[in-house]
Design a protein around this nucleic acid. Structure first.
Lengths: 170, 170
DNA sequence: TTGGAATGTCAACAAGGCTGACTTAAAGTC
DNA sequence: GACTTTAAGTCAGCCTTGTTGACATTCCAA
């Protein structure tokens, strides 16, 4: 039993014959889609002389208010020097607030200020509008498949981060 | 009729109630998955003092041998100065060959040399291995959905590029 | 023959990664 | 109490890869 995709069903199991061409399409789809994914917020950021790194910081601080610098570091997967440069400008510009920890005073807990929330919303709205359009066009089954494949593509450590974030908001 | 995803079916149509949380998950999935997507070739590139830009050039020259610089430019979406820097090192290192056009001698047609093919294969193998694993784990329906959503997420111009490349290899 | 297109090149700059070295403060441990 | 470890911040310098702007060359086409 072979379907139009070139897959075969043997008993209960569907064996995937993944040709190089099919995988290549997936690779190129990721490349082109990621560009679209970042295009809208990038345009906004450019007018503010911020970059993608600022957007990422805002996004994850918004999603986990009070997160520590170390925690943010491991989510973003960059060095503290790299994050610090971004974080410093966000704090200077009054978009992020850094509060000394109460139990552990070495830690800094990060929060968005009112302005930070506003910018994050502007960036997120732009990005979500495109996601929403894509989701609507593709339909709910495609969306489920989309998330399944993306999750399978992550490094195990990143998958843990991803799931932890979801649960934290669950 | 509401399903577990919070969607409703009214007549033939499924209305998607896309909550911010659902969209947010998609955004984070893209972020973490893209990191995984590039991680394996990045490790190889680092040992060769090449970067992602070199990989992309090799990938698309491999996929469309004889492509012109201008064509490559529009696929990659960078400036000619930026591409030129990368292309120059690849040519110097004997991975890419640039041939003056026969009809239009202003154009340069780009080809991978034997060494270029070898490096592209090494990088592609690493990237495809992860894709293949993800595809196998997720199953064929998920893969179809994955591609549908990614395609819907692209800028129209990039979607045209993507489809043109597929057709070219058809 | 002249204008425009495709290409290449030089210079300068910026974002955002990286490493390494070092400080400060707090927490934990022996 | 002394010592070690941890969290965070900072400074300096480097790399890749993107950008703009200016300009030369080549050559097709009107």
């Amino acid at each position: 039993m072979a379907d139009t995709q070139g897959n075969q069903t043997v008993g209960q199991e569907t064996l995937l014959y993944l040709t190089d061409e099919q995988l290549r399409q997936g690779i190129e789809a990721m490349f082109f889609a990621y560009r679209g994914f970042t295009a809208d917020p990038d345009r906004i950021l450019a007018t503010l002389s911020y970059g993608r790194a600022h957007h990422r910081a805002l996004h994850f601080i918004h999603g986990a208010p009070g997160t520590t610098v170390n925690n943010l570091l491991s989510i973003l997967g960059v060095t503290k020097q790299s994050l610090n440069r971004v974080l410093r400008t966000l704090i200077e510009d009054g978009l992020v607030e850094s509060r000394v920890g109460r139990q552990d005073k070495r830690e800094r807990h990060l929060f968005l200020t009112e302005d930070g929330v506003a910018l994050d919303a502007r960036l997120s709205d732009a990005q979500r509008a495109r996601m929403r359009a894509a989701y609507k066009q593709a339909g709910p089954e495609a969306v489920a498949g989309f998330k399944t494949v993306l999750e399978a593509m992550m490094d195990p450590e990143m998958r843990r981060q991803y799931q932890r974030l979801r649960e934290g908001r669950g």
